[in-house]
Deep mutational scan, measured.
Amino acid sequence: EDYYQILGVPRNASQKEIKKAYYQLAKKYHPDTNKDDPKAKEKFSQLAEAYEVLSDEVKRKQYDA
């Protein structure tokens, strides 16, 4: 799945936009606030993985290549 789609940001998003999108979605899908939703944990880990790659310039360049 596309990391940009997961975070809901365009491919040319700035680091600030990526961070903002991640924090909004992380708050929304955090397992502690969605105890009754088994998919929230999965969504949250996808968000974390996408953010880890896109927030790191080197990893992001490799991902975009």
Rank of each mutant, 00 (worst) to 15 (best):
K39G: 12
L7P: 00
E1S: 14
S14H: 07
F44E: 03
Q5N: 09
Q46F: 10
Q24C: 12
R11S: 05
R11P: 06
Y23P: 02
D64Y: 02
A65H: 11
Y63R: 02
E49C: 08
K59Y: 04
K19N: 09
Y29C: 06
N12L: 09
D32Y: 03
Y51F: 12
V58D: 14
G8M: 06
G8T: 03
Y22C: 02
S14Y: 04
S45A: 14
D36A: 11
S14L: 08
Q62P: 02
Q62L: 11
K39W: 14
I18S: 00
L25M: 10
D2I: 03
Y51C: 03
T33D: 08
E49T: 12
D2C: 08
S55T: 05
Y4E: 00
K19P: 01
A48M: 14
Y22A: 03
Q5C: 13
G8L: 04
D2Y: 05
Q46W: 10
P10F: 06
D36T: 11
E1V: 14
I18W: 01
Y23H: 09
D37L: 05
K28F: 09
R11A: 05
L25F: 04
F44S: 05
I18V: 05
L7V: 03
N12R: 08
V58I: 12
G8P: 00
E57Q: 06
N12P: 02
V9A: 02
D2S: 12
D56P: 01
A65I: 09
A50G: 02
V58R: 07
D64N: 04
Y3S: 01
K59E: 03
D64L: 02
S45G: 09
A48N: 12
Q24Y: 15
Q46E: 06
A40G: 06
V9F: 01
Q15S: 11
Y4W: 02
P10C: 14
K61H: 09
E42T: 11
A65S: 10
T33R: 12
F44H: 05
E42A: 12
V58A: 15
Q46G: 05
K28S: 08
A40D: 05
D32A: 10
A65W: 07
Y22D: 00
V53C: 07
H30G: 10
N12I: 06
Q5G: 06
E1L: 15
Y4A: 01
K16Q: 15
V9Y: 00
D2Q: 04
K19M: 15
K43A: 09
F44T: 04
Q46Y: 10
G8V: 03
K59F: 04
K27Y: 10
S14I: 05
E17A: 11
K39V: 15
Q15R: 11
E49A: 14
L47Q: 03
E52S: 15
D56K: 02
L7R: 00
D36R: 07
